[in-house]
């Protein structure tokens, strides 16, 4: 029997922050292949800083961070981590099609002098289709709804076939109908075995997709377990705060 594959993400006593000042610290977290983890927490709790730390966008200040068994700083191919940022504009002040935006997800995979190959173009169409936008591949992204634009960013992250997808608030500011489509896209990805970590405020939109919850508050992990366990944890928290208030 071969040795078990290393976890997709493994943090031990990790701290991340900006300009040398930690925002989240003492984080122990292991994400295994195929897991879908929701990262919850109030505004300013450090959940986004944590996810950005895995992308090299916030500073890694202490502890161990390994992605796919390799220390983060030595990970040669960053596109193995797919990133879906929280964005209001997709391309800045110009027009661009869905396919043009999605194709940027492949750039880091090839040397600067090499143009896109046929395989690249096929990968772009496959990713656009996986995000449920096949009939809109040649649309100007400005004409899409907020939810569809979010799916363009998911397709851009998927196109390089990453080992893990990190998403920042994918359902925020998206109307109900598009949220349902978005959720079904996420569910399809989860069923296909995609490993995901989703920073979110709205757990209800991800019901049935998430199989683990990590709660971050005031810079520390305060809960790590199943959705059922999280409901119990919240109930206990509500009771204890109610008791304190009554006293």
């Amino acid at each position: 029997m071969s040795a078990p594959a290393p976890p997709v993400v493994e943090l031990r006593g990790a701290a991340f922050g900006y300009r040398g000042r930690p925002v989240v610290s003492d984080v122990d977290l292991t994400v295994r292949r195929g897991e879908v983890v929701a990262v919850l927490g109030p505004n300013g709790s450090g959940k986004t800083t944590l996810v950005k730390g895995l992308l090299g966008l916030s500073e890694h200040l202490s502890g161990q961070v390994e992605v796919l068994g390799t220390p983060l700083a030595r990970l040669p191919d960053r596109t193995r981590i797919g990133y879906v940022p929280q964005r209001h504009t997709l391309v800045g002040g110009v027009r661009a099609t869905v396919a043009e935006v999605v194709a940027t997800g492949l750039l880091a995979r090839r040397p600067w002098y090499r143009p896109a190959t046929r395989a690249d173009r096929e990968a772009v169409l496959a990713a656009v289709e996986a995000a449920g936008l096949a009939d809109r591949a040649r649309f100007d992204v400005e004409t899409l709804s907020g939810g569809q634009q979010r799916r363009v960013l998911i397709a851009r992250a998927l196109v390089a076939r990453p080992d893990v997808l990190l998403m920042d608030e994918p359902t925020a500011g998206v109307d109900r109908a598009s949220q349902d489509v978005l959720t079904s896209v996420l569910r399809r990805l989860a069923d296909a075995g995609t490993t995901m970590a989703i920073v979110t405020h709205e757990l209800s939109a991800l019901r049935g997709v998430v199989d683990r919850i990590v709660e971050v508050d005031t810079g520390h992990v305060t809960f790590d377990g199943t959705p059922e366990g999280y409901a119990v944890h919240q109930g206990a928290l509500a009771r204890s705060s109610g008791r304190t208030a009554a006293r």
């Binding site: 966008l57 191919d77 964005r87 997709l90 750039l107 880091a108 600067w112 896109a116 390089a160």
Partner: peptide
């Protein structure tokens, strides 16, 4: 393509290793 990616979304371009 690279100039387009960086001008469009600098943060994503950095995360993807450009």
């Amino acid at each position: 393509p690279r100039l387009f990616a960086v001008a469009g979304d600098e943060e994503y371009a950095r995360a993807s290793g450009l």
